[in-house]
Amino acid sequence: MDTSQIFVTLTGIGLAAFVVWYFFFGKRETQSATLTNSGIQEVAVTVKGGYSPDVIEVVKDKPVRLKFYRDETSSCSEELVFGEFSLRRELPAYETTVIDILPTKAGTFEFTCGMNMLRGRLVVR
């Protein structure tokens, strides 16, 4: 093994480890919903290569309004799937799509893009 081989091997293994750590064990951005005067829990979510915030905390049995603003044209994020609530909604680029749901049971429910690559979680307490 020459120097460049050792360099490439070590760099490669380091990169692979970084990829695994970065994508699978990284910390997520969490936001609790704010309660409006009318009793609706509201959260604005920006869709741009992912969801910000990607963990949304709400309380159960109170209506939730999620405002998804899609800030890109990439087709990866054009659909939003919320399996628990039987929702598959198109998110037009540079527009806000309002999604109203009523969580009636506690738990963690995932929302994803149409291909299940981008993901976020709704935590109902």
Partner: peptide, 8 residues
């Protein structure tokens, strides 16, 4: 996506 720790 990278900024969101997501990969597509």
């Amino acid at each position: 996506s990278f900024l969101h720790r997501a990969a597509t």
